[in-house]
Amino acid sequence: MATKTRVPQTVDAYLASVEDPAAKKTLTALRTQLRKLLPKATESITYQMPTFKVDGAAVAGFAFFKNHCGYYPFSGSVVPVLEAELDGYATSKSGVTFPPDQPLPAKLVKTLVQARLAEIATRAKKPAAAKKPAAAKKALVTDRVTDAAVKEATGRDWKAWMRALDKAGAAGLAHKQLVALVAREVESGWWQQSIAVAYEQAQGQRVVGQTAATGFQVGVVRTLPMTASALWDWVTTQPERWLGPGATLKAEPGGHYAVPKRRGSPGVSGVVRVVKPGQRLRMTWQPDGWMKPATLQLTVMPKAKGASLHVHMEKLPDAEVREAMRARWSKVLAQVE
């Protein structure tokens, strides 16, 4: 008869049961940080994972699986609204997964906790609304969060934020730049993202069902031991290193690139759409046989030690292609490193 695995009943017991040394070290450090961020929280085991609760509401949880760790905010909204912050991580609607030897940055954990706390506070203040037919529901931030809640948390209601951002010239900013603009006045990462997305929706940049419109997406990021300027030169002058042998690239708006067909790999071609020198390269991505192109974007960001290269793809046709692209770019960046 098979022996039934006993589920740990305390967080201490859970951590003691983790046999992987790197995972134990990472999760123990994560627990310590959560204790500092949530000094009044109670610790328990919920859904078989260590969980921090504030006034009975689950705020953060973590777990170790066979070969990865996971962080869970016990919300279906926190991870999607922090999409830009989590670029490069494997995510689902309910959580973030990461390698045992690559802990989540402390700043990112703080942002996730703040986002969940802000969400709980917002829901507590929002009056119950009459149920609407499913077809009539909208996925707009301003429909989900009341004027009173945003004003109490940030000092402005929605109309005031729209006017302030218009006056600041936000209409021409990329999403991360818009978030950075809001961050000058708002500390909470969740509110920064919510205000930025609300403004984009008001401007028509983001519409209901955007995820469906952009198809399947994937992002991979790696910090490399070179300066941001050197990394940018590498991207724009050595396309064969990241696109494939024989690749040619004209790194200017309207420029074309091509990757020859090889055994086991189709040829790929596309057109450069956006070039922000030293920062971003955005182009179409269309392998032989594809009816419609996907979009490929490379972003270079300076870091304290080196520079990071973010690879993001959207409008991919299905989940299988998404995972293939995740594997492809992970392999490319690992080889570069």
Score class of each variant (00 low, 15 high):
303 K>Q: 12
43 E>W: 01
189 G>W: 10
103 P>N: 01
123 R>N: 12
75 S>F: 02
260 P>C: 11
142 T>R: 08
40 K>H: 13
138 K>A: 10
94 S>L: 04
330 S>D: 14
29 A>T: 02
204 G>A: 06
6 R>W: 05
262 R>W: 12
65 F>P: 01
243 L>A: 09
271 V>F: 09
168 A>P: 10
89 Y>E: 07
287 P>Y: 05
48 Q>L: 11
255 G>C: 11
62 F>K: 00
102 Q>E: 14
19 E>F: 09
192 Q>F: 04
18 V>P: 03
168 A>R: 04
103 P>I: 03
321 V>N: 04
93 K>E: 02
262 R>A: 15
156 R>I: 01
283 M>E: 03
223 T>K: 06
216 F>S: 09
140 L>Y: 14
124 A>W: 10
105 P>S: 11
285 W>T: 08
215 G>D: 09
248 T>M: 11
181 L>C: 08
104 L>A: 11
35 R>S: 03
137 K>L: 15
332 V>Y: 00
137 K>V: 12
256 H>A: 14
204 G>H: 02
148 A>R: 06
79 V>I: 15
4 K>Y: 03
291 M>T: 14
253 P>G: 06
316 L>W: 01
13 A>E: 04
126 K>V: 13
156 R>K: 14
228 A>C: 06
118 A>Y: 08
253 P>D: 03
97 T>K: 13
41 A>N: 01
77 S>L: 01
158 W>I: 00
56 G>R: 07
285 W>Y: 13
188 S>R: 02
126 K>F: 13
219 G>H: 05
112 L>E: 05
31 R>N: 05
122 T>W: 10
172 G>I: 04
93 K>D: 04
236 T>Q: 09
